[in-house]
Simulated assay, not measured.
Amino acid sequence: MSLSIQGRTAIVTGAGHGIGRAIADHFVSLGANVMFADWDETALQVGLAQHDPDSGPVRWFSGDLSQRLTLANLLSATLDAFDRVDILVNAHRLVRETDPLEPDSEAVEEMLRHNVMGPLRLSQIVARRMIRQATDEHDPVQAGAIVNLTTLAGARPDPARMGYSIACAAQEQATRNLALVLAPRRIRVNAVRFGSVMSHELKQSLKADADLRARMLAGTPLGRIAGPDELTEVVHYLVSEGARFVTGQVLTVDGGRSLVDGVTGTVRKGLVP
């Protein structure tokens, strides 16, 4: 089984912080050409100080990834730098609290714009490029790979973050639909649904809620919070030829947290002693 992505070109959104940054750095370490994309230009510049953006396989792009023109410019910048794109990881996420009974709030629309429509549109234009590239190649297995990052919020109601919860569920369904459409073109589309992983957003939540860590550990059968690198390895597998027969799947990486009853906080009978 080959996990090599050496020489491949990847776009990773949300690469200024946390999980997106960890994925992009990991791809660089594996010899891939990587476009780091994020809205936070300062974070990109600071984070990429360890890389050489002028002579190495690394470039960065800053902008509002919910806007059509920005997405088109991101793809153009990638093609200008590397002449192709083989991998897309949609790791950019926006999390906001939502009043579930406030019809005039734009929070739900904001969550859908950033977490669903942005990744979906970027996937569409990148996939079209992958299809054009494939006409000049002879790889019968894989013309490209797309991975969307989502969370357990898509599988469980979360009234305090209703917009984000709806967006995560929608992104998972978009993953399945694109996988069906693109399978004949040899482009695979999968998602990773994570829970107990130390993301940038989780770090902020832990600072704001002193009891959150204890609750998470109690509700995670493996008894710990994973580092971003443990999610990175899963994404690496999904974009490699090792996963060449895997598409349309939502792979859960949460230390068993999805096995736990979200209401009572207890492990469901029969799963864990």
Rank of each mutant, 00 (worst) to 15 (best):
V189P: 10
L65D: 02
M198V: 02
N33R: 14
G219T: 04
S123M: 12
L202C: 05
V272A: 10
H51T: 01
L88P: 08
S55V: 13
V181W: 06
V95K: 06
T266S: 09
A169H: 03
E201H: 09
V108E: 11
A167M: 10
D38P: 08
R96V: 09
A191K: 07
V263C: 01
A10C: 05
A32D: 04
A81D: 02
H51K: 02
V116C: 02
L178Q: 05
D209N: 13
A107G: 02
T264K: 08
V116L: 12
L71V: 03
A191D: 09
S199N: 10
V108R: 05
G63I: 08
L149I: 08
G195Q: 06
D99R: 05
P157H: 13
T220I: 03
H138S: 14
Q173C: 07
R193Q: 14
S62A: 15
L101W: 13
N33G: 01
R188A: 01
N90V: 00
F36M: 08
V250G: 02
T175V: 04
D136N: 11
A24L: 09
E110H: 09
V85Q: 01
L152M: 13
A15K: 11
D136M: 12
I187G: 06
L79N: 02
F245R: 12
I5Q: 09
P119L: 11
Q171A: 10
G7P: 05
E241T: 11
E109G: 13
D40T: 08
L222D: 11
L71T: 02
R176M: 08
P159H: 11
D38Y: 04
E137W: 04
A174N: 06
L222V: 15
